[in-house]
Nucleic acid binder design. Structure first.
Lengths: 261, 261
DNA sequence: CGTCAAGAAAGTGTCGACACTATTGCGTTC
DNA sequence: GAACGCAATAGTGTCGACACTTTCTTGACG
């Protein structure tokens, strides 16, 4: 590994300049929170690679904090499924295998369909109209946005459905799922295979919502999600090839240990 | 609050009765894990009451460890929804209001129905037979078991369905839900309103599984869960009345001096 | 040459201490 | 007597240190 996040950037090829360490003599007070966000970002961006062991000391040096907030962040990330913890051996980046990915998308499909159905049953007209106007407000510019914006708007769309279901548990679950697959979705959006079929999907879903047609809406959602799975799989393979690519393979030592994650 | 955790009388679930007195000056090495289990148990058993602020120092003294493993455990519990964290003010026991309970049961219903459907589609005959034999092996003695056993067997039944769905995410989610509502379910089982209708429900669900009748099975599951919700609500109210001093009404107004030892 | 064991190095798990923040209790002013 | 500071206290957030465990290195032995 070798993360460089501090001010003394050596191989600052593509590191994010966002976290300036403003290192005064002042203590932070929210180091854990920042560590959580930073580490999650590292995971999302493949800076920490699947299956890799996470070195707390290195991380703490990189982030300029002690190991305590690092460990708190890692514990949270472990609960959320980003990393796994092996006693006395430390945290490992959870490898998201292809089948694990399918499971996650399947789970997402379940949540979203249920949310849509509940929304149709419970949301009043003004709430449904919020969904419609949310989508109408962004649909025109949608295809021309940068990937990050597309991703955020898409997540917002689906999250709004979850909110309108009236069940906060669904909102929380969908948020968690989104976080876990965000890096893959981003890869997929940037991948050449990404087409604009999402737009018609979303529009059709809005129509179904307005008509309170739960059955049809769920079908659309299922297809909408399944459609992206195959494309995503290919994009993921390409991305993994790029990450684990040639020369830098020095990190990959032969470690024959059965470590499921 | 007043927690009294006797030295090593913890979750007697399957703890090894190993050396206790021998290792006096020995350090633990898995304090976090034990703290996690112990605190979760305190939450489940209402020793820590909904809305109450959690005092880390007190807890650490009670458990005989430093605050570090306590905080790691609390962080995990926060990710899992047992407690909430307010910056600079600490951890609070998450109050499970009645509506929060309904949301949780609704979520559970969604997960279970989806799992049943997937099981019908994917599990082979021998796996379905595992479900049948699991239930047949316990059905006769079921009504006469103590509450803890009933609870464990019931959870095992539903968890097995989740496993047979082939999606590990569903298993994890259901486990998490189970943990969060376990204390309520236990209260409900001990409550006089608890009847034995569960048995016919489970048997009918097994039948539907054998016939691979996903539609009917999901309907049964939904009813099975909904049936317990109303009974649980009443049981919960009684339990809360018993836990909180009579006639308080307010959820989290409880303030206690830290003077008690 | 390869195997293996003992020691060295690296890394995790836990602790006590301290800085900073929120809360409580007390005295002052109007 | 009530509102408002203002000191004292209690409690959280973070740190550096150290004990214990795992992993790597080295060197003796077959």
């Amino acid at each position: 590994m070798r993360i460089v996040v501090t001010e003394r950037a050596e191989t600052s090829a593509d590191s994010d300049p966002s976290l300036a360490a403003e290192a005064e003599t002042r203590r932070a007070a929210d180091s854990s929170e920042r560590a959580y966000n930073t580490i999650r970002k590292l995971l999302v961006e493949f800076k920490l690679k699947p299956g890799e062991r996470i070195n707390e000391v290195q991380l703490s040096r990189s982030l300029g904090v002690s190991r305590t907030p690092i460990r708190e962040a890692l514990n949270r990330l472990a609960s959320e499924g980003f990393v796994s913890l092996t006693p006395n051996r430390g945290f490992f980046v959870r490898s998201l295998s292809t089948e694990g990915l399918l499971d996650l998308y399947e789970f997402r499909s379940i949540i979203e369909c249920a949310a849509f159905k509940l929304m149709c049953e419970r949301a009043d007209d003004s709430e449904i109209d919020r969904l419609r106007s949310y989508w109408e407000a962004i649909v025109d510019a949608y295809p021309d946005q940068p990937p990050d914006v597309i991703l955020a708007e898409d997540e917002g769309f689906h999250l709004l459905i979850a909110e309108l279901s009236g069940n906060p548990e669904l909102v929380g679950q969908l948020s968690s799922i989104n976080a876990r697959i965000r890096f893959i979705r981003r890869i997929q959006i940037e991948h050449p295979s990404h087409d604009k079929a999402q737009i018609t999907s979303h529009s059709a879903i809005v129509d179904a919502a307005v008509r309170r047609d739960a059955e049809n809406g769920m079908k659309l959602l299922r297809e909408h999600i399944e459609m992206t799975v195959s494309a995503t799989q290919q994009a993921l393979k390409d991305a993994l090839l790029k990450v684990f690519a040639p020369g830098n393979g020095a990190d990959l030592k032969r470690r024959r240990r059965a470590r499921d994650a």
